[in-house]
Every structure is written in C-alpha cells, then in structure tokens.
Design a protein around this nucleic acid. Structure first.
Ligand code: NAD
Ligand code: NAD
Lengths: 223, 223
DNA sequence: AAATAATTGTTAATAAAATAACATTGTTAT
DNA sequence: ATAACAATGTTATTTTATTAACAATTATTT
C-alpha cells in the first residue's frame, strides 16, 4: 500500500526552498496572534508574487478558504510534515573555525527537528571544548560518532584544501547529506545529497550587476 | 559610439555565477603552471558538464583552439573584464558579529577588485577596533563613510530584527548592491541589486532530500 | 594520404521555473 | 435577489536554463 508521504518527491527544488521560507513567515505571524493569512500577505513578506505562493500550495495539496485565506497552524503543520523528518535529523559541523562557530551559535535551538549535535576539528586546542552545548570531537572520531549518534547531515567548514578528504571521510562514515561552504567543489556518490554555496561567487555576482546598473546609467546620461 | 563592454548585459544569471567559479578554477590551474585547459577539465573541477562550460564561453564570445583548449590567462582576463569593475568596488559589512567577522577574515585579500574596506556596528565595544585591517565604525556614521569612500556594496549581518532598518539606511546612503545574510527578507528599490541567502533554508532543503532518499530506500526494501 | 579520434562551437530539443489568464466561489453591498 | 468584489485553484503560456545533437576542425595514427 502506498503511503501518502511519498507523494512529495517531485516538488520543484525551488518550491522546497520557498516552503521553508513560508514556514518562517508563518511562524512569525502565528507568534503575533494571527490565525489566517492570504497568499498576498505571504508573498509580500518574502518578495515573490501571490501567484507563486498559491501555485506552491497547490502543489503540496493545501487549500485555503475563499474569504479567510490559509489557516496558519494547519499550513505550518503541513509544511513540517513535508520538510521535517518525524524522528528529527542530526547534523554535524566539520571545522570549528570562524564560520563553523558562527553557524553553531546561529542554528542552536532554531529548529527542533534539525539539530547540530556534534562538531569536529583537528586542532587539539578545540577538541574537548563545548560550544553552545555542542561538543567538539577530534576529527579522527568522525566515523565512530556519526555512526553511534546516527548523524545524517554534515556541514563542511574546513579549510578549502581539506574539503575533498573530509567529504570522502564523511561519505565513508555513512552521511546522507552534505552542505559544503568551502570554495572547493567536492564530489560525492549519487546517493548523497550535496548542496554547495560559495560566498565569493555571490558577492562577485552582486558586483557584476552593480557594475551593469552603473554602465546603464552612464549610457543613459551620455546619450 | 557603443562600447563593447556593454554587450554582456543579458547573460543568464546562472552563467554569471559560473563565470566566477570558472575563474577560481582557472586561477588554481594557472598557479600550478598550466597554460591551457579543456572544457571537460573545467567541468570536472566544478561539477557540471563540458557542454555547459562551452555554452557559457560561447555566450561571452570566447574561443579556444581545437587541440589545445582554452588559454587560461586570456580567459581569466576576459572573465575579469566582464565581472570586475575597472576601478574596483568597495564593500562594507554591517554587523560585526560572528558572521560579519568570519566574512571579513575570509574575504580579506581574496580579490583585489573587490575589497571590504569598512565595518559598522552599534556596539560601543566594537567601534574603533580594527579587524584584519578593516576598521569598525559606528553605525551612525554609515552614510558619511559610504559617501566619502564611495562604497557601493554592503553585506548585512545584523540581527534579523534590525535588517529592514539597516537596509533602508544603506539605500538612503546610496548603496548600489546588497547581500543580505539575515533570515528577514528586505525590500529595496529596483535600482538596488539585492541578493539574499538564508542558511537555515538551505539546511532544511538538504534535510528534505535526505528524508526523500531515506523514504525511497525504505520503499525499495519493503516492496 | 586516409582514417580515426578528440575537441570546439552552435543550433535544436527538452526540462524547469515563473508568470499570466481565467474560471470559480463565497461575501458584502445595493 | 443580484451585482460587484476579492479571494482561491488550476490550466496555459512564456521565459529561463540545461542537455543533446552534430557539423567542423585539426592533430595523430595507420
Ligand atoms: N569565514 C567565512 O566567512 C567563510 C565564508 C565562506 C566560506 N568559508 C570557507 O569555510 C571554510 C572555513 O572558514 P573559516 O573562516 O571558518 O576558517 P578557519 O581557519 O577559521 O576554520 C577552519 C577550521 O577547520 C579546522 N580543520 C582543519 N582541517 C580539518 C580537518 N581535516 N577536519 C576537521 N577540522 C579541520 C581548523 O582547525 C579550523 O578550526 C574555508 O574553506 C573557507 O573558505 C568561510
Ligand atoms: N552566525 C551565523 O552563522 C549566521 C548564519 C546565517 C545567518 N546569520 C544571520 O546573520 C545575522 C548576524 O548573525 P551573527 O551570528 O553574526 O549575530 P551576532 O549577534 O553575533 O552579530 C550581530 C552584530 O550586529 C550588531 N548590530 C546590531 N544592531 C546593529 C545595527 N543596527 N547596525 C549595525 N550593527 C548592529 C551587533 O552589535 C552585533 O555585533 C543574524 O541576522 C543571523 O540571523 C548568521
């Protein structure tokens, strides 16, 4: 017999990202005592169109009411059913440097179905410390701890030159998802989900469009 | 008379991001003494297809040679001409907390056409300090410093609740591009280029696909 | 010298994502 | 009652991005 949970496997990637953002907006509204919300309200909090919101909600099969909009609690729960794992997912951070520490501070306690429970480093000064309740283990114990704790996701924030090796070790340890903040792209087998993000690329992109806007202005004024 | 520089204004957004990544890969290869490179080599460093690389290079009008591939130096220069501003672009970081400091450490000296030259904060303990050569000014002086130094891009790393106000002030100060790392989406006029990135959304996306992979496996084994 | 192989550059096809169009449906006002 | 309105939900269209197909070129091998 088919589970209903399995029907969300072909949602567009962008929709998944937006669902997470919708939920954040919804939680905010809920905390302010609202019970219902219209598509155009969600849309204006994030900056997208109401049509996009309705289309996404259609895809996850949620219906609002015509004059009240969407029930905030219901929608939060539905998004939770889609995104979250029932049992919760454990996350590790590898590389407890500037970025790793910033992330731990930031994430801690934000989502109860998704929690960072371990950090790893090679620096003896860091091993054994605890940061915001997250213990820092020796990187040599990665496999052991990941298996013991059932950690499924790792965030890589080691120096770029160690990224590939770290990724390999994590894959060998049985990790299911990787989030790589290193500028060095890594390769993983297809059964591991990989997301990469490079801040310099993003900044360079901003710089490019700023340059373009400037050139446009110059053209307008010089013609 | 039309400048040739103006012809890159309808490159796909994704292509811009990849050009930045290609350049990183090219710089690495150059530093290792390579002079030429094939599309499949670039492709394997990033993880995309050779076709994608060739298509992007076609869009920017660069031609390689059939048996040697692309001239690394030439290509680096061309990408620089497209992405970089001749005069360089100055960047400020607003919010010298964990993330702001991590970014300053990370960026400093990475790109000479794009440099972080100022930080801003409201915390008196931070104002007046210097971090990696970047001075931290009082947030009350944002407009003054931005105008005086000709800062065009700002990275927002203040607490989420102050994001909108900070963005407004930056726009009023004449900023051209914003990179918002706060989970609070901000609104800017259309003449300001805005890029937003939320790490929790990314992590939740990874979690979703990990969950999906797990469910798939279960289905395979239980059928 | 002909065949082969490897690579580029470009066009064509496909896929993914966003936007627009619009029918439908309750609610309110007249 | 009925018209006007303001929402939703869905289908159709358009735009953007990726992938595939393949002709053209040149070095190398036979
Ligand atoms: N700092 C940022 O804002 C920022 C932004 C984007 C990307 N990054 C990238 O993130 C990574 C980390 O940046 P950072 O600023 O935190 O650097 P960092 O030097 O402060 O931290 C790196 C940490 O990793 C540890 N480490 C080294 N090798 C390791 C290994 N094999 N296993 C486990 N731990 C190991 C080091 O001991 C150190 O604590 C770098 O690759 C950097 O390019 C940083
Ligand atoms: N730390 C992370 O890894 C991380 C990751 C993703 C997003 N973020 C977001 O980035 C922002 C900063 O995170 P953080 O961990 O660095 O927080 P933080 O509290 O360490 O730093 C915030 C800094 O901003 C300063 N500040 C407050 N109001 C200001 C204002 N109006 N103008 C200028 N400066 C002001 C504070 O004094 C502080 O130094 C938050 O919105 C957070 O949600 C952080």
């Amino acid at each position: 017999m088919m589970e209903d949970r399995g029907t969300f496997d072909n949602l567009p990637h962008k929709t998944i990202a937006r669902l997470s953002q919708y939920r954040r907006a919804l939680l905010l509204c809920l905390s302010r005592g609202k019970s219902h919300i219209f598509s155009h309200e969600i849309a204006s909090i994030q900056h997208i169109t109401p049509v996009q919101v309705r289309r996404d909600l259609m895809l996850i099969g949620y219906s609002g009411t015509l004059r009240k909009g969407y029930n905030i609690k219901e929608l939060i729960n539905l998004i939770g059913n889609i995104i979250d794992s029932e049992e919760g997912i454990k996350v590790a951070i590898v590389g407890m440097g500037n970025l790793g520490r910033a992330l731990i501070n930031y994430f801690s306690g934000k989502r109860h179905k998704l929690s960072i429970i371990a950090g790893f480093d090679t620096n003896p000064d860091k091993i054994g410390n605890t940061m915001n309740g997250v213990p820092c283990y020796s990187a040599t114990r990665m496999r052991e701890i990941i298996e013991k704790e059932g950690i499924q996701i790792a965030i890589i924030t080691v120096p770029a030159e160690n990224a590939s090796q770290t990724a390999n070790e994590l894959v060998a340890a049985g990790i299911k998802g990787l989030l790589n903040y290193t500028p060095k792209p890594i390769d993983v087998p297809e059964y591991v989900y990989l997301e990469e993000y490079d801040m310099i690329t993003t900044l360079e992109k901003v710089a490019f469009y700023v340059k373009m806007k400037t050139l446009e202005e110059e053209n307008i004024t010089t013609i």
